[in-house]
Amino acid sequence: MSIVQETPIYRFGDFTLDVTNRELRLGEKRLELNARYFDALALLVREHGRLVAKERFFEEVWADVVVSDSALTQGIKAIRRVLGDDAANPRFIQTVPRHGYRFIAGVSTVARDDTAPLPDGEAAGSPDAASTPATPAAGEAFPSPTRLADRGAAALATALATALAGTLGGAVAGLFGGLLYGFGLAHAPPDPQPGTASILLVLITLSGFLGTMGGFGVGAGIAAAEYAAGGRAAWRIAGAVLGGMLVGGSVKLLGVDAFNLLFGRTPAGITGGMEGAALGLAVGLGAHLGGGFEASPWWRPVAAAAATGAACGVLIVLAGGHLLGGSLDLLARSFAESRLQLDAIGHFFGEVRFGPTTRMVLAAIEGLLFASCVVGALVAARRPRNGLPA
């Protein structure tokens, strides 16, 4: 006959933590805490007095999803709010910079069949009561091979979802970009261009394809970085940059070969690897500055990505690069018989031609659209999985 050891009830300060029944109480009042944050608190209390490394939170609390350090930071903040703790002068949770967290309050354990108040000499939180460390629940300190396999499958599923979300976000950005240029040409003063409907269709198709490929590159780069190295922000940013650069360079190479094959020449300077890397940086850095894909509220990383995307678009032009608008202008000027002339759009910005101001403003809009749509898709894809509040 096997004996099942139940997890004891923990007491610290005026709080009672019943892991089995998943209850945190302050006196008789039941406190609400997000499910993952409850597990994080239980891990801290169970290991009271000992450092709990960040990696252990990711392995035991977020085992089924790859998250960044910001998710853990948000969780600790939420736990501190519920406990009334102060990070600057902690009573319960101490931060160990760059390593993890330690539960510093005294913890006593109560057998499940004995929930009566402790004797005066063993008040919750007293040194004597905390002298016996809690026993970890069976299987938590040493995950079984099956659980490790499940974690690997969950990480792979998260990576695939990340790549797909990035692809969809890029496609949406490309659609909006095509509409922007199509309707801009249709209503450009003084006269709209002939064949506007066909031009609009071509621009939407071309912009949608480029956006989809760019989103796939950035999303796949982030997914690969997370799968290989966890949710660290630096790896995410590096993955986004590398993915954007590889896909951007590949698309440019195919485009150059196609134009050389069909027309015998191709314009120099069309968008490619450098621009893809810059947009990848805008996505990764913007999400990080906004608190990560798991941040709350959800619009913070999206807004930060929009700002960094716009800034990167301007910097691309200042560095001599081109996004979609600049590349289309180069193509139109390289083929005299082309019906596509973007000079008319310059009138919206007080220029006679498709000049530097027009190029810079449109690049900023393109960068804003791409970064915000990709980050928005990644945030939306992860929210049902990580359980963070809105």
Rank of each mutant, 00 (worst) to 15 (best):
T146Q: 14
V352F: 03
E47Y: 01
A42W: 01
I316M: 12
A311S: 11
F142D: 09
A303F: 02
T271E: 14
A197W: 13
G290L: 08
G106M: 10
S334I: 01
A53D: 09
G13C: 07
K54E: 14
L26S: 11
G195N: 13
R333S: 10
K252F: 02
S207P: 04
R382G: 10
I76G: 01
V96Y: 00
L281G: 10
H48I: 07
G169D: 12
P143M: 03
G276N: 04
T167Y: 02
F176A: 12
K77H: 12
L179T: 05
Q5F: 14
L210D: 11
K77F: 07
S108I: 12
S250P: 05
G291C: 08
L315F: 11
F370Q: 12
T20M: 07
A188R: 04
T132F: 00
F15A: 14
K29N: 12
A380I: 08
L175I: 05
P189Y: 09
T135A: 13
P190G: 09
L24N: 11
N89Y: 00
G27D: 08
K29F: 06
E140P: 01
D114Y: 05
F293Y: 11
E32M: 09
P133V: 01
V82A: 05
G219R: 06
G291L: 07
G292N: 03
G121R: 06
A390H: 08
F103K: 05
D113Q: 12
G152A: 14
G244A: 05
L201F: 10
L168F: 12
L200N: 03
P190R: 02
T271I: 02
G100S: 03
L342W: 05
K29T: 13
F209L: 15
T212F: 00
E140G: 01
N21T: 06
A238S: 15
E366P: 05
P136N: 07
G177V: 04
V82W: 00
L203S: 09
G244D: 06
I237G: 14
A304R: 07
G291W: 10
W235N: 12
R265E: 13
S131E: 11
T16E: 15
R383C: 09
G286P: 12
H99Y: 09
R91I: 01
A111M: 08
A123R: 14
F38H: 10
L246G: 03
E60S: 10
S126T: 10
E226L: 06
D39Q: 15
R81E: 14
D39A: 14
M274K: 04
T73N: 14
D128S: 13
S250L: 15
Q94K: 07
V61F: 00
D120K: 06
K77M: 07
V379F: 07
L324P: 04
E122D: 07
A186P: 03
T95M: 04
R98L: 13
G121S: 11
S126A: 09
A381P: 03
W299N: 07
A116F: 08
A42N: 10
G269H: 05
D329C: 02
L160V: 13
G178F: 05
E366Y: 03
R359I: 00
E60G: 00
H99V: 04
A268F: 11
G309W: 00
S2F: 04
L185K: 05
R98K: 13
L388W: 03
I199R: 01
A295P: 09
I204R: 03
L362M: 09
G326N: 14
F335Y: 15
A171L: 13
A149V: 00
G49N: 09
A53S: 04
L179C: 11
L279I: 04
G284V: 01
